[in-house]
Amino acid sequence: MFGSIDAVLFDLDGTLIDSAPDLGGAADDMRVARAMPCLPIERYRPMCGAGARGMLAVAFGMAPEHPDYPAMREEFFQRYEQRMTLNTQVFDGVTDMIDALEQRGLAWGIVTNKSQRFTGPLLASVDELAGAATAISGDTTPHAKPHPAPLLEACRRMAVDPARCVYVGDDERDIVAGLAAGMGTVAAAWGYLGSATAIEAWGAHAIAKSPVELLKLLDNA
């Protein structure tokens, strides 16, 4: 399906880690501070891939065009910064998947739209992700996903041909970015899937329902 590959790149939130409890928790902390009732985490989960924009939309119905949005976004960032490692953990099967990739001699890295302000401290706290060959944040290059620039920068740093790389993500923009970079693409169906478009319509080369299924896809490449 993918031909010979040298590396696998992953989105972070919703693909490697379940950060919904802390992303949603930060937004819910904002509601509580305003004497508003808590919302269940499942209300936040589908929109976690959209970061502050998604969380403020769920918590307050607030769009980026709202005049209070910049201040609310910064408050969200500060609250998230205070708790971002509280309940975040890798998804089931991710540790075994990473071990298997390393045993196969495949390099792996991370390309996220999360800003370095959060990516650095978060990755430093998650031991299971310490082996990443590179970690590209949303502000590492002038463009974030769905632009291919962050993926191409990851390949440059890893000295890997993009055509011999697979990108795995749980959002439509991940697949758009991977295809634009000339990579093989896998939609991570275990993630947040925040797009209004059905995962089958994203145009990914393959869909994996779990990290174990992803390994099987790569083995059959």
Score class of each variant (00 low, 15 high):
2 F>Q: 05
4 S>I: 10
9 L>H: 06
9 L>N: 02
9 L>K: 07
10 F>I: 05
15 T>C: 02
16 L>V: 04
19 S>M: 10
26 A>D: 03
30 M>I: 11
31 R>S: 06
31 R>F: 09
32 V>H: 12
33 A>L: 10
43 R>F: 02
44 Y>P: 09
52 A>F: 07
55 M>A: 13
62 M>V: 08
68 D>M: 11
68 D>T: 13
69 Y>P: 01
71 A>W: 08
72 M>T: 02
76 F>I: 01
83 R>K: 11
84 M>L: 07
85 T>M: 09
86 L>G: 04
87 N>P: 09
87 N>C: 14
90 V>D: 05
94 V>I: 15
95 T>Q: 13
95 T>A: 14
99 D>L: 14
102 E>G: 08
110 I>L: 00
111 V>H: 05
113 N>V: 00
122 L>Q: 07
127 D>W: 03
127 D>E: 14
130 A>S: 15
131 G>M: 03
135 A>W: 12
135 A>L: 12
136 I>K: 14
142 P>A: 13
150 P>I: 01
153 E>K: 10
156 R>A: 15
161 D>H: 13
162 P>A: 08
165 C>H: 13
166 V>A: 07
170 D>V: 06
172 E>M: 04
174 D>W: 09
178 G>I: 01
188 A>Y: 03
190 W>Q: 03
193 L>T: 00
196 A>T: 12
199 I>D: 01
200 E>S: 12
200 E>N: 08
201 A>P: 00
205 H>I: 02
211 P>D: 05
215 L>I: 13
216 K>Q: 15
216 K>R: 15
